[in-house]
Design a binder for these strands. Sequence first.
DNA 1: CAAACCTTTGCACACGGTTGCAAGAGCGGG
DNA 2: CCCGCTCTTGCAACCGTGTGCAAAGGTTTG
Lengths: 333, 333
Amino acid sequence: MSQKIFVSAKEVAERAGVSRSAVSRTFTPGASVSKETRRRVMEAAEALGYHVNHLARGLMRNESGIVCLIVSEMDTPYRATLIRAISRHLQNASKIAMLINTDRSDASVDEALKLAISYRADASIVLSGMPDKSITDLCVKSGQRLVLINRDEERAGALMINLRDQEAARRAFIAFQRAGCRSFAFANSDVGTPSLMAREEGFCAAGREFGVDVTVERFGPTRYQSGVVLAQRLLTREVRPDAIFCVNDLLACGVMDTARHQFRLAVPDDLCVVGFDDIEQSSWSSYQLTTFAQPVDRIAEEAVSWLSQPMTDDGQFCRMTADLVWRKSVRGG
Amino acid sequence: MSQKIFVSAKEVAERAGVSRSAVSRTFTPGASVSKETRRRVMEAAEALGYHVNHLARGLMRNESGIVCLIVSEMDTPYRATLIRAISRHLQNASKIAMLINTDRSDASVDEALKLAISYRADASIVLSGMPDKSITDLCVKSGQRLVLINRDEERAGALMINLRDQEAARRAFIAFQRAGCRSFAFANSDVGTPSLMAREEGFCAAGREFGVDVTVERFGPTRYQSGVVLAQRLLTREVRPDAIFCVNDLLACGVMDTARHQFRLAVPDDLCVVGFDDIEQSSWSSYQLTTFAQPVDRIAEEAVSWLSQPMTDDGQFCRMTADLVWRKSVRGG
DNA sequence: CAAACCTTTGCACACGGTTGCAAGAGCGGG
DNA sequence: CCCGCTCTTGCAACCGTGTGCAAAGGTTTG
C-alpha cells in the first residue's frame, strides 16, 4: 500500500502564518475568527488543497457523520430506489452513506452492525434481515441510532418504519372482487419475512371475511424467476385462479409473463394481477401492473429526519400506507 | 444530537488488568501478545462490547479502509448491479464502500471527490460523470487511488476500465446484416458520454464499411422513456428501420415495447433490436433481448484488486470485451 | 552458572483535529 | 488616563488508537 500524504492543518497554519487553532476555527461554523485571518487561512488552504480530516474531526466531536445502510440484494429495483432516496436525503442532512452488503448470510447482518459500531457510525439503517437483539441493544446503549425498515420485529430504542400490509392486501382483494374475479390466489416467496407474511395473511383474512377460498403458493426468493415457477404451479391447478395477488412486483412480472407467453392467457381479461412496490418496470407498457406504491421518498425522509431528533429510550413505530396505483392488470378500476 | 458513549480500549485494559497497549496489540494481527493476555483482553472486550475505533485506527495507520463510490442514478439496473458487485469485492478485501450520490449536477462529482478526500478514503471509484483534472490530480498527489469506469477520458495515475464499445457496435451491425436487415438505425441518448458515443461511432463506421446508411437519433437520458420517444421518431420515418441498435438495454426495452404495442410490429420478424449492458430485464420473457453483456463482476474484481497493487505514476488502461448474448430479438443467431 | 537471546509488556509519543481558558489587542465611556 | 468590555488568538489538553523503544522476565546454550 502506497503512502498517503494528505495536507494537514499544521501545514496550512504555517503557510498562513497563524496557529493551528485558527485553521480549525476557520473550518468550524460559528467559531470566532477575524475576517482577515479567515481570508489568509482560506487562501493557504486553497493553494495547498487542504480538506478537513473527517476521521480526526469525528474522533474529537464524537460524531462521524456516517450512516450505515445494511442491505442484501441491493440491485433489486425496490431496494436500489430506496437506497438512492436515502442517500439523497442523507446528503441533504450533511451525512454520508456507508453501504454494507449482507448477501452472504443472515448472520452477516450482525457483522454489519459491528462494522457500523467500529466506524462509529451515527446511525444504522437496516433494509434486509433482522439483527440479533444483543447487537441492537449494544448499538442503542452506545448511542447509535437504529432504523429498521419493513422489518416488523420490535427493537428497543429503534425507529421502525412499516407499511399497512394487511390493509393493502384487503384492498387488493376487494379490487379483484369488483373486477368479477371468482378464484383467488396469493403468490408468495418462501423467505417468510414478517411484512411479506402480513400481506399473505391480510389477503387470506379478506377471503375469510367474504367467504371465499384463497389458494396460497410459496416459492423461492422475491424475484422474477419465482414468479415464473409460481405461475406454473397456480395456473395448472384444477380450478385455475383468475386473480393473483403477488407479494411484490418483481414476482408479479414473472407471473404475468408466464401467464401470457406460456399459458396464452390475456391480462386482465383471463387473469387479474396485483403487485406490491411499484417498481419502475411496473409502469412499462408490457406490464401496466396495478400495484401498491411504497412511499419510498417518505420512508427515506422519515428515517433521515428522525436521526437528528433527540433520542427516546423505547422504540418508535411509524406506519405508512401503500397507495394503490391503478394500471391495466385488473379489469375496471 | 445525543451523546455517544462507545467503550474504548482504556476501559477494556482496566477491566482486564493490563495496559492499553496490550489491548491494541490483541486486535492487531501479528503483534506480540502472550496467549494469556490475549485471553483476558478478549474476555473483557466481549463483556463490555468493545470494538476497535476505525476512525482512530485509520488516523494512525493513515489508511481508513474506506472506498468511495461516486454514482448518479444509482437505481438504474446496470449501475445497481455494478455497485453490488463492487461492494461484495470490497468486503472480501476488508474494505468498505461509501456511497456518494451525484444526482444533483455534474459539478457534484468534484464535490464528491473532495468528500472522499475529507474522509481520507483509500480510493475513489467513479461510475458517473467526469471529475475535473485539478481534483483528480489532488487525489493522486495525496496518494488516493482513483478508478474510472467507462469514463474514457484519461487521468494521470488512475485506473481506467473501459469496454471495446466500437468493436461491439460492429458486431451488432454484422448480426443485423446476417439477419437480413436492410435499414439500420442507432438509438442514442443525448447525454454524449464518450463510451455511449463510441458505440454510435462504431455502428456508423460499420455502416460506412459495408456501404450502408445508418440513421441516428438521439434523445434524453439512457432510460426507458427515451426509448419510447426514440422508437416513435424512428418508426414514423419514411423508410422504417428494421434494425435498431440501442445504446443500452433500458432504452431498448422502451423501443421494443413501443414497436410492439404502439406500432404493432413483431420483434424480431418486423424489427430486430440489440441492446447493451445485459440487465436482468433483458432476459425476461417479454423482451428476450439480444444484447452485449457488461462483464460486471470482472470489472468489479479488476477495480478492487488494483487498489492493493503498488501505485504507478502514469495512468493504466484496462479494456474489456462485452460478449454478445444471443436471445430472440434478432432473427437467426 | 553466566551469557545470549527471545518474548512480552508498559511508557510515551504520534496521528489531525477541537475547544476551554487565559492573555492580548482594540476601543469607547467616564 | 484608566477601567471594563468585546473580539481574537495561541497554548495545551484531549479524543482513541498504533508503535518504537527499552526494560523485564524467561529460556536456551555453552
